[in-house]
């Protein structure tokens, strides 16, 4: 009775998640397509920045998703660590969000580098924001590396959660130290893209890019979390069978011992 009930609820959950996955996937795809049309064809090149202004429709949004992903990782890690809220789901979310965050931070760095090349003529400039982002990338690359170290599920979850927290509380410290580093010694104004005036359709396109990339993040999260759950279920489903096998191992021995 109980098993059928749990199976039913898990079945209902699966179909809900499936629908959600489809909807998010469709929304993400559609908004990316619309963003491409808006960003590449509808909006015009900037007077100062030229075609490079189109990076504005991807770069800030990827940076936003990266920060959001790391915030989600830390929150999920905290919820896993707290004994009362501990659920495998939180670890799956933390792990998925950390790796997606690293990918988006990498994307932000690449796009920023392209922008720098177009605007200042250098692939890399040691400005405060770029340096912070690079350190952020390295911080969470470490967390993801930690997650891939072979371990039991609980040990891995614990390491991910604590590693993510150590990294997360470092973010403001990195931010301020790098900011002071640049403002106390060098002119920061050169590095500000001050010539850009955003308005009208450009502003809308940029804001829309936040929605589009957030949807992409949500879709990726659903896929990664679901995959992790299936992996867990595969293991857990094997557990009952494994226990029975283990117990029969005992009875075989008992027969051998008494005979």
């Amino acid at each position: 009775m109980r098993t059928t009930a749990t199976m039913q609820t898990s079945g209902v959950q699966t179909s809900t998640v499936q629908t959600l996955s489809w909807l998010t996937g469709l929304a993400a795809g559609a908004s990316l397509a619309l963003l491409t049309v808006l960003g590449l064809f509808v909006t015009r090149p900037d007077e100062v920045q030229g075609e490079a202004v189109r990076l504005l429709y991807v770069h800030p949004a990827t940076a936003w998703v990266a920060y959001m992903a790391f915030a989600v990782t830390s929150l999920a890690g905290l919820l896993w660590l707290w004994p009362r809220t501990r659920k495998p789901l939180w670890d799956r979310i933390a792990g998925a969000s950390a790796s997606i965050g690293v990918v988006f931070t990498g994307l932000t760095l690449v796009l920023g580098s392209l922008w720098g090349r177009a605007t200042w003529g250098f692939w890399w400039v040691w400005d405060a924001r770029g340096t912070s982002t690079l350190l952020l990338f390295l911080l969470y690359a470490g967390v993801v590396a930690l997650r891939y170290v072979p371990a039991t599920r609980d040990a891995r979850a614990r390491r991910t959660a604590i590693g993510a927290l150590i990294a997360f509380i470092d973010v403001p410290l990195v931010h301020f130290s790098v900011k002071w580093w640049k403002t106390l010694h060098q002119e920061a104004s050169v590095l500000q893209p001050s010539g850009v005036q955003i308005h009208g359709l450009q502003l809308f396109t940029m804001l829309f890019s936040f929605v589009a990339f957030s949807l992409v993040y949500a879709w990726l999260m659903i896929q990664r979390t679901r995959l992790a759950r299936w992996e867990d279920e595969l293991e857990a489903g094997g557990l009952d069978a494994a226990i029975v096998a283990r117990q029969s191992e005992g009875s075989q021995h008992l027969i051998g011992a008494t005979s």
Partner: peptide, 10 residues
């Protein structure tokens, strides 16, 4: 106590 297969047998 005799343990086999992860449980107490006798």
């Amino acid at each position: 106590v005799l343990i086999t297969g992860g449980r107490v047998v006798t």
